[in-house]
């Protein structure tokens, strides 16, 4: 953002130095979102005690949650920190929930087993986004959507994010179209880790979370679509490649099926 303000290409800066010491035009700069400013104003006006009484020991105060997806009452909610995911789901009247994506596409994907986890810095940290997916949803569709999103969002500055997000998207598409193999899942998992450890900024470091999370917590959405489960020799599918030729030549004899 600061680069853009200065009229440069919108790529992330190297940190350190952090904006607090050298930001816009190399001057100390405060970069925060609206919620932070609003809460800071409230504390300034009403004092910090009331605010600090809410929440947990490490996460004091409240958090705005922007709830969307498969629930009857989506919208903006304010909860004290420490609220469980289950309480949030009940508050917005979500039924038959399969998964909850906390903190946006780059956040954490929680399965039903984890709904007792708390929204707090010490447990599930969030910027505020909560996306709810019920059991009618095909989670791989969600993954696809996120994978495409990150290809679009990557600024292209650093290698892992620039190339890795596209590699991941292609692999997700490959699995989605029933061409994937167990080796592809291994690659997805490894690329996810490379993005996390080697990317230049937070976007790249988190751009593979949705894949890493779902591979771990919802492996069946991938496995049920694999071409074969094991012992696959990576190659092209000779038989389906021959199908076009069979159609054209009208051959149905035994030797036309290698």
């Amino acid at each position: 953002m600061i680069e853009s303000l200065e009229g440069k290409r919108g790529v992330p800066r190297n940190r350190p130095p952090f904006p607090v010491t050298q930001g816009y035009l190399n001057k100390p700069t405060v970069v925060n979102n609206v919620e932070t400013f609003a809460l800071a104003a409230r504390i300034a006006v009403y004092g910090g005690d009331g605010f600090a009484a809410l929440g947990t020991k490490q996460s004091k105060g409240t958090k705005l949650l922007s709830i969307s997806g498969d629930c009857l009452r989506p919208g903006i909610y304010e909860f004290p920190f420490g609220v469980s995911v289950r309480e949030v789901l009940e508050a917005c009247n979500a039924q038959d929930t399969q998964a909850v994506q906390i903190s946006g596409a780059a956040g954490t994907c929680l399965s039903a087993k984890e709904f007792d986890r708390k929204i707090a810095f010490e447990d599930v940290a969030t910027g505020g986004s909560v996306m709810i997916f019920n059991r009618q949803r095909d989670l791989l569709e969600v993954v696809r959507n996120f994978a495409h999103f990150f290809v679009h969002e990557s600024c292209g500055f650093c290698t892992p994010c620039r190339v890795g997000t596209s590699l991941l998207k292609n692999l997700v598409e490959k699995v989605y179209t029933n061409h994937g193999t167990a080796d592809d899942l291994k690659d997805m998992s490894y690329i996810s880790q490379v993005l996390k450890t080697a990317s230049h900024c937070g976007l790249g470091q988190t751009a593979s979370n949705h894949i890493a999370d779902t591979l771990k917590k919802f492996p069946e959405i991938y496995h049920k679509r694999l071409l074969v489960e094991a012992n696959f020799e990576p190659a092209f599918d000779l038989d389906s490649a021959l199908e076009d030729a069979r159609q054209i030549t009208g051959r149905k004899d035994e030797m036309a099926y290698l």
Binding site: N14, F157, C158, T159, P160, T197, A198, S199, H200
Partner: peptide, 22 residues
Amino acid sequence: KPHGSCRLCTVMVNGRYESACT
């Protein structure tokens, strides 16, 4: 001026991943 884009020089500094050139 270092650029830090190829990420080949990523090292572990006190337990965190950082690019050595920046």
